[in-house]
């Protein structure tokens, strides 16, 4: 068994690429920790990995989806997207859908991602293959970033009005908001691309 310490946070593509590279080198994922990945030896290229953001779903629909994937013969791992070391906690996800807005521990807390493993059959492994569906896949990701960007901007404005001066807090919040806009715009670009594609095809 081999243990690797890595933290990809919100860089889902990087995490997916890394896992696939490990699989090509002959390492199969057997366990995920907060910042660790345990591997065992396998034939090089025996498995393929795909990552999906599921934090917008309620714990119930997440479990249903997981059962569905497992019935197809895939293996599903949970993975956290951020670092939190707390026990017994409730978290509000403003970008969630319905019950997906509330995340509890134990429950969907710290399980924002699915890592899906499939035995390599020589074909590319994509969970989403329709254009409209690909656009929908990136929407929750964009919304999550949009929420943080909007909230920090709102706080910046509030502080500015409150103190009537451009203080350190205001500048920090504006920078945070701008930083969050980068991934938001990246995902927005993909959504727009696939939306246009799905209007002409399918």
């Amino acid at each position: 068994m081999k243990k690797y310490c890595r933290f990809f946070g919100c860089f889902l593509d990087a995490q997916e690429n890394w896992l696939n590279k490990m699989a090509q080198k002959g390492y199969r994922l057997i366990r995920t920790g907060k910042m660790t990945y345990d591997f065992e030896k396998c034939k090089p290229g025996e498995y393929q990995y795909a990552i999906e953001f599921v934090a917008q779903q309620s714990f119930k629909s997440e479990k249903e989806y997981r059962t569905f994937l497992e019935a197809l013969g895939y293996k599903v791992f949970y993975k956290n997207i951020n670092l939190n070391f707390s026990i017994g906690k409730i978290k509000w996800r403003p970008y969630g859908r319905g019950m997906g807005q509330i995340s509890t521990n134990p429950g969907s807390y710290n399980k924002e991602l699915f890592i899906v493993e499939k035995k390599n059959d020589g074909k590319p492994f994509n969970l989403h293959t329709m254009n409209c569906d690909k656009a929908n896949y990136y929407k929750p990701l964009r919304n999550a970033w949009l929420t943080i960007a909007a909230i920090s901007l709102a706080f910046a404005v509030w502080f500015y009005i409150d103190t009537n001066s451009i203080s350190k807090e205001v500048i920090t919040l504006i920078i945070l908001s701008l930083l969050c806009s980068i991934p938001m715009l990246k995902y927005q670009k993909r959504i727009s691309y696939f939306s246009v594609q799905s209007n002409t095809e399918e």
């Binding site: 994937l69 019935a71 197809l72 969970l127 329709m130 896949y137």
Partner: peptide
């Protein structure tokens, strides 16, 4: 689910491949 995926792949000779997430939706 798996049967539906295989059905589509076979009938279209692999031209149309449906991902698991898309199929679930």
């Amino acid at each position: 689910g798996y049967g539906i995926m295989k059905f589509i792949e076979e009938k279209t000779q692999g031209r149309l491949v449906l991902g698991a997430g898309s199929l679930y939706g």
